[in-house]
């Protein structure tokens, strides 16, 4: 059995570029298809609206900006994937981040999930709420956590 189908979970920051580059490196090496998934965090937006920290117009504007950030990132990831001539698809989803990533990974029957470095956990509480932690623990397939940007850049250049 080989690894044919890789999913990479991205959040849009610069760390996500490193994560994506490592996923591209793996996809190239294994001749696998790569699917990048960006989730618009509608759960947090809803919670902030409910707790009155956000007003409706503010939440809508924020949601639009998150969508734009996601689209922009997925286009950027596509350009990187095209450079290395790998099969790529970008998916912009919305909802609870870990639920969407895990369910899409299942639906795609992915062989491998690639994600960014996990944050330092300061309490048990964070293992309940941190989206990265939950993706890591609930993923239905092996997970690769990307670290060491310098090394990743070097590997990406090699392929």
């Amino acid at each position: 059995m080989s690894i044919n189908n890789i999913v990479v979970s991205v959040t849009g920051g610069e760390q996500s570029i490193i994560t994506t580059k490592y996923a591209i490196y793996l996809a190239k090496l294994l001749n696998a298809k790569l699917t990048a998934v960006y989730v618009v965090d509608k759960k947090s937006l809803h919670d902030l609206l409910k707790s009155r920290i956000f007003v409706e117009i503010e939440a809508l504007e924020f949601e639009r900006e998150l969508e734009q950030q996601g689209k922009h990132f997925l286009e950027r990831a596509k350009k990187l994937a095209d450079t290395k001539q790998i099969q790529y698809e970008g998916l912009l989803l919305e909802g609870v981040i870990h639920e969407q990533v895990v369910s899409k990974t299942k639906a795609l029957n992915a062989d491998l999930l690639v994600m960014g470095e996990l944050k330092e956990i300061i309490s048990i509480k964070e293992t309940y709420f941190d989206e990265g932690e939950r993706i890591f623990r609930e993923a239905p397939c092996p997970v690769v956590v990307v670290k060491n940007a310098q090394k990743v850049e070097a590997l990406y250049k090699e392929v």
């Binding site: 849009g12 920051g13 947090s44 937006l45 920290i53 924020f62 998150l66 709420f129």
Partner: peptide, 12 residues
């Protein structure tokens, strides 16, 4: 964007 969102959610 994401940092801000997570921060406000945690503070809330």
């Amino acid at each position: 964007l994401n940092l801000y969102l997570r921060f406000l959610a945690e503070l809330s």
